[in-house]
Each structure stands twice: as C-alpha cells, then as structure tokens.
Design a protein around this nucleic acid. Structure first.
Length: 200
DNA sequence: CGCCTTTGACCAGCGC
DNA sequence: GCGCTGGTCAAAGGCG
C-alpha cells in the first residue's frame, strides 16, 4: 500500500493498522479530519479534499468526487462555530476495512436514510444516521471500487453518547468484545482509535 | 405499533 | 443557464 504524503497537519494517518484483538483482520488505512478549524484560509479545505479523495479510493481519476467533497467541506465550514465542542462535533473519520460484510456492527445503532450510485464506481454508497436521539453522527459506507473485498467507512461527527454495546458489556460482560464479529470489532477498534486521536 | 429499509424525488454546489 | 453529481428527504411497505 502506498501512502501519500500527509498533505496537512490537520489530520493524521495511522500505520499501525492491525487490531491487536483481531490481527487476522486488516484495517487497511484510516485517517482523521478536524475540518480545518484552526485554519482561517481555505488551504486546509483543499488539503482535506485531496486526503479524503485518496481515502475513499478515488485516487485514480474522478474529479467530480473531489469537487463535491470541496463543496461539502465549504458548506460545513460555513456552518461552523469555532468552539472546542464543535471541533469534536464535526470531526470526520474514514477508514478502509477488509471485510465481506458491507455493514459492520460497530456497537452503535444506525438507520439507513439513503443510497446512491457513485460515478466511476460500480458499487452504491449507503448513508446512515445514528439512531440514538440527539446524536447527529452520520456515516457513509461503500465498497472500494478497486478492490471489492474492502469496505470504506466514513464517520461524520462524534457520538454524543456511549456506544450502547460498550455500555452493556462494560456493565455486564467486561471480558467480551463489544462487537459481534472480528471484522466488526476491528472496525470499532479503528473508529475508537481514530476518534481518540482526533480529540485533544 | 414502532422502527427499519427501500427508493424516487428534490436540492445545492460546481463546471462548462 | 444547464446538466451532472452527491447528499438528504420522505412516503411506502416490511418485519418483529
């Protein structure tokens, strides 16, 4: 796997990509965005465009994905208030997991609200919202267009609550994994790790 | 009955 | 201005 140069100090790549609990499952790559909260100009947004473009397997051609990402980020920046709380609220985490399961149980309850076919990709992209009340975290799930054995998951925002699964297991079964399958556990692991890296 | 998925419609941003 | 694209909405139907 060829990793590009980190184009911005506003997010981080992680290379120690094997979940110690499930070393047979590969979380290929993931990264964390802070959406340029500490930048007053647009350079951070441009960097994020290129990085997420890479992350979702868009490096080969498509410019449309990049333009759309750009507009999305611009829109989001327009709504942002630069409080520390918001910095946590709007973090974006994306990672790629080798898994046959398209939807992995990461411990949270998700409600599907949309499905779109993506240009230059044979695989549809699915959109999910966290179904917990008051939590506005979203995630996108799609198969890697270049290698369908990989699932690309992008989380948008940070949960305002504990994972119901984690709460349950912490309370009742602290020795068990908080997810139902090795791949799910690894997805959860990567997500938790990425989020902990994005909080400061 | 409540919650979920499905799916077509709609909207906004962008490039030409 | 128009068409393309990604993201979201909301109605309809299914399931436990």
């Amino acid at each position: 796997m060829n990793y590009p140069e980190n184009p911005s100090p506003n997010f981080s790549y992680f290379y120690d990509n094997i979940d110690p609990a499930n070393p047979e499952i590969e979380v290929s790559d993931y990264l964390v965005f802070d959406d340029g909260f500490n930048q007053e100009d647009s350079s951070a947004s441009q960097s994020m465009v290129s990085s997420e473009k890479y992350c979702v397997g868009d490096s080969s051609s498509g410019s449309n994905g990049a333009t759309s990402r750009n507009s999305d980020i611009k829109c989001r920046n327009g709504m942002m208030k630069k409080t520390k709380e918001d910095q946590v609220e709007h973090s974006r985490v994306a990672f790629r997991t080798k898994s046959e399961l398209e939807v992995m149980d990461d411990g949270f309850k998700w409600r599907k609200y949309g499905k779109k076919s993506v240009k230059n990709s044979p695989n549809p992209r699915n959109y999910y919202k966290c179904s917990s009340g008051g939590c506005s975290v979203k995630k996108r799930v799609e198969r890697d267009r270049e290698d369908r054995s990989y699932v690309i998951t992008t989380y948008d925002g940070i949960h305002s609550h504990e994972s119901p699964c984690v709460v349950y297991y912490n309370t009742h079964l602290p020795l068990m994994l908080p997810s139902s399958s090795p791949a799910s556990a690894s997805a959860n692991w990567a997500f938790q790790k990425a989020q902990s890296s994005s909080s400061f």
